[in-house]
Computed example of a mutant assay.
Amino acid sequence: MMFDPTIFDNLKVVFEGAMYDMDLSGELQIVNRTDRVELSAMSRSFGMEAVRKPDGAVKGSFFLKASLADLSAELLAEQGKQPGCSLELEFVYPIQEPARDCEEAEAILRSIWGEAPSILQVVQTVYGQEPSVRTNHVTVQFSRKLDERQIDDIPSLLEHLALSMERLERQGNAASR
């Protein structure tokens, strides 16, 4: 019997290949990769994290996720349910002035991704660390599920990820002057 890959499996292979192509071309450098099966919730997630250059200040990641409900909708061909995967992007980088830098980050990401995704920014600081270093953790969540119909869009999506990293890094360099 042949194994029929799920939507998650197919998207994962394309995302992974496209990221390794960007790493091979020198556009990004992959620094982490996660591939998880959560047995308690029967969900899967796959993600890769990269920087633009070895000393890049902005780490950019994508996370592809499929829940039990997503898998069930696909395998059982449940009526009225849209099978697919959720996609989340994350950017982590140091900031100087939270109010100013977060507002600028929101504007940069909206100019690239538009108004559709939700953007959440969480600023963290380490207690007792002097000088105080603040880190912005930005999450971009897409409400629409992905499936094989978006496979051709994945390289472009990852180019937008790299562009977001470049512009956030440029913002950070300008803010530190």
Rank of each mutant, 00 (worst) to 15 (best):
M2P: 10
S111N: 14
V126S: 02
R100Q: 08
K145Q: 15
D21P: 04
K65Q: 14
E38Q: 12
V138E: 00
E97D: 12
T135P: 02
F63T: 11
G56Q: 04
E16W: 06
S156W: 10
L158N: 05
G17C: 11
G114W: 00
S61F: 06
L24Y: 12
V37Q: 10
S25C: 04
N173F: 09
V13D: 14
A175H: 03
D55I: 03
E130K: 14
D55H: 02
K53T: 11
A41K: 00
P117R: 03
R177V: 15
L120Q: 12
G128V: 08
P83A: 10
A105S: 12
S118T: 08
E16R: 14
L75D: 11
R33D: 12
L161D: 07
L109H: 01
M19H: 05
G80A: 07
V122H: 06
V14T: 09
S143N: 15
Q96S: 15
L157W: 14
P155R: 02
Y93Q: 01
I7A: 05
I108H: 08
F142Q: 02
F3I: 11
Q96L: 10
S111P: 03
I95D: 00
L11E: 00
L11Q: 03
C102N: 04
R177N: 15
D152I: 14
G26S: 09
V92K: 01
R167A: 13
S164Q: 08
N10P: 06
L89T: 06
Y20W: 14
I151T: 08
R170D: 12
T135H: 09
D21T: 11
L168F: 07
A107Q: 08
S61P: 05
W113V: 03
L71D: 07
V51G: 08
G26C: 05
Q129A: 09
E148F: 09
G60Y: 08
F46A: 04
C85T: 02
S111G: 13
S156I: 06
E97C: 05
R144T: 09
A107M: 08
R170W: 03
I30M: 05
G84R: 02
V140A: 06
V37F: 15
A18I: 07
A50S: 12
P94Q: 08
D21E: 14
R170L: 15
G114H: 00
V126C: 04
K12F: 12
L89Q: 02
K59R: 15
R177Y: 15
P155H: 05
S176L: 13
S25K: 04
A69P: 08
L168T: 06
K53E: 13
I30E: 04
Q124T: 07
D23T: 05
E106H: 13
R144P: 13
K59F: 12
H137V: 05
Q141F: 13
N10D: 02
D153L: 14
A105H: 03
T139D: 09
R33N: 11
L75P: 13
P131S: 09
A50R: 02
A69D: 14
E104S: 12
D9P: 04
R144D: 11
I30N: 05
K59G: 06
V37I: 13
A69K: 11
L163K: 10
N136E: 03
I112W: 04
R144N: 12
P83I: 07
G60D: 01
V133N: 06
E115D: 15
N136Q: 02
